[in-house]
Design a protein around this nucleic acid. Structure first.
Length: 497
RNA sequence: GGUCGGGUGGCCGAGGGGCUAGGCAGAGGUCUGCAAAACCUUUUACAGCGGUUCGACUCCGCUCCCGACCUCCA
């Protein structure tokens, strides 16, 4: 796989990635709805597409990464309900949707930063693009594929499907969908059950509302992505991503809207990450197993036995291919925590290893093996971003690195050129591509380290004098304070536990 | 009910007709004043039943189970 391949949801096949307009690559990813706190489910797509975006950049593409914030809709905070306007005189007593949206947007950004996701190039909000959405709806009306009823506008799916393949992305047939759909209340305005809203008239109690040619209302569920993707990436653009749950109806409808309004399909490649489960069950309100990212990072949740750091979560997500479901449970997360430590430790070891030329030790087969592993990192990433396999190769390299450090194998069995190549590749993939970073902030605090070096040298003096009572007291008391000493060949290291 | 995906060793997970995935846990070992840590080595697998094949965990069929979407959802 010397060329990048991407599984395209449209064709259900792995295709060679050919940008529409190289070296530029446009990527749009459906962002969060900020009516609530970010949870575990948000971590997966955004870590996934962050790595995808990083890999594309690594391949020297100039990437424009757009990820929206859905901040328009029917918003109510759990503990703070909208108070009836007639009864409340003071504005400050009422729920202000933008305040709520701002709060959760900030929390989302904090969580994304902790997960070490790079921020998208453009992060447009739905409320900031009402005008674009209205004009796109007008365009669709002009084409005759939408109709207005009582101040709401609906997309005419049945009419669209006559000349277009509605259902191609999600693998559905429109006749079956209409036959299978139930009659719901409030659907009487729609001509057909499969139709969806482009603009909804705002009922009196609705808090978010904007003037439009059809009266006061708010945009439909799907139109914001069509409008913003078109505005910032043009049509068609290269990659559209999101969770598999969005494939239908959201992305299917997006295609219909954009095609109708612009005459072009939005994206060439559609990518969908799979869902996560918690203890084998889908995470959702009805299952009572929703874990927010804050709870995860603090361990403050009945289902969690301990806190899991953002990097542990990132590592855990990337250890699985993005198209597979991923199950969260304590045992697996603890495993990820250990695995991450091992990998990061090997990276430190590698950076400290000294290579001393010794031609007699050279082994062609060993040198080949290392080079093959290095190349495999790129090949696996090019194979539909197979981070699981990339990490497997990194771990195999980690074993070799550790063996060199322990003198269980000779580092000079590989050439110095191979060693240098390994060093840069190992660091590149761990920190730049996978975006894993060392979390122990204290370790990089130089004052703390100076103090610890002093304590360690005092303890070692005691040990030399065989004053083990003192040396063990130091070790045990530090342990109680959450600092672990690690005696090794090269001296004593310490870490926060 | 319809459409789609999946069932891999104690746990999480890659893979794809013959070639060790990997991580964690377990076991053995190295190091150590002792311990911890670290490191090395290593056991256990492909839901069941048929079929295709020289050969299937991998392809086909059936059965059982699980999940996703169809409704807000990452």
């Amino acid at each position: 796989m010397s060329q990048l391949h991407i599984t395209n949801s449209l064709s259900r096949e792995k295709e060679i990635f050919i940008p529409l307009n190289p070296p530029y690559v446009g990527m749009y990813v459906c962002g969060p709805t900020v009516s609530g706190e970010s949870h575990l489910g948000h971590a997966r797509p955004y870590v996934t597409f962050d790595v995808i975006q990083r890999w594309l950049k690594h391949l020297d593409y100039k990437v424009r990464y757009v990820r929206n914030i859905t901040d328009a809709g029917h918003f109510e905070e759990e503990d703070r309900e909208a108070v009836d306007k007639v009864d409340t005189k003071a504005k400050l007593e009422r729920l202000e949707p933008m305040e709520l949206v701002q709060k959760y947007t900030n929390m989302f950004h904090d969580a994304m930063d902790l997960l070490n996701n790079e921020r998208p190039g453009i992060e447009p909000t739905a409320t900031g693009h009402i005008i674009e959405q209205i004009s796109m709806i007008q365009e669709i009306l002009k084409k005759g594929l939408a109709y207005e009823v009582n101040g709401s506008v609906y997309f005419d799916v049945t009419k669209y499907a006559k000349n277009n393949d509605y259902g191609k992305l999600s693998g559905r047939k429109i006749e079956e969908m209409i036959a299978g759909s139930r009659e719901l209340e409030g659907q009487d305005e729609k001509r057909n059950a499969a139709d969806f809203a482009l603009w909804k008239k705002a009922p009196p109690e609705h808090l978010m509302r904007w003037p439009s040619p059809w009266g006061e209302g708010f945009p439909g569920w799907h139109i914001e992505c069509s409008a913003m993707a078109t505005k910032y990436l043009g049509v068609p653009f290269d990659i559209h991503g999101g969770g598999m749950d969005l494939q239908f109806p959201h992305h299917e409808s997006e295609i219909a809207q954009t095609r109708t309004a612009t005459g072009n399909s939005p994206a060439k490649y559609w990518m969908h990450n799979n869902m996560i489960t918690v203890n084998g069950k889908k995470m959702g309100k009805s299952y009572n197993n929703t874990i927010t990212l804050r709870e995860l990072f603090s361990g403050n949740h009945p289902l969690l036995e301990q806190a899991y750091s953002p990097m542990t979560i990132r590592f855990f997500i990337l250890q699985t291919h993005y198209r597979s479901t991923l199950d969260f449970n304590n045992e697996a997360l603890k495993g990820a925590e250990k695995g991450l430590q091992r990998l990061m430790n090997s990276a430190d070891v590698l950076n400290q290893l000294r290579y001393m030329e010794n031609a007699g030790d050279f082994s062609q087969s060993e040198d080949d093996a290392v080079n093959k592993l290095i190349s495999s990192l790129t090949e696996y990433m090019n194979d539909d971003f197979n981070t699981a396999m990339t990490m497997a190769s990194l771990f195999e390299l980690a074993s070799k690195i550790n063996a060199w450090q322990n003198q269980q194998a000779k580092i000079t069995s590989i050439s110095s050129a191979t060693f240098e190549r390994l060093k840069s590749a190992f660091n590149l993939f761990i920190s730049e591509i996978l975006g894993l970073k060392n979390e122990s902030a204290a370790a990089s605090d130089s004052k703390m380290d100076e103090v610890m070096q002093l304590v360690i040298s005092l303890r070692n003096e005691a040990r030399t004098k065989k004053d083990f009572a003192t040396s063990d007291k130091i070790r045990n008391d530090l342990q109680k304070a959450g600092i672990q000493l690690k005696d090794g060949k090269e001296g004593t290291a310490w870490e926060i536990i």
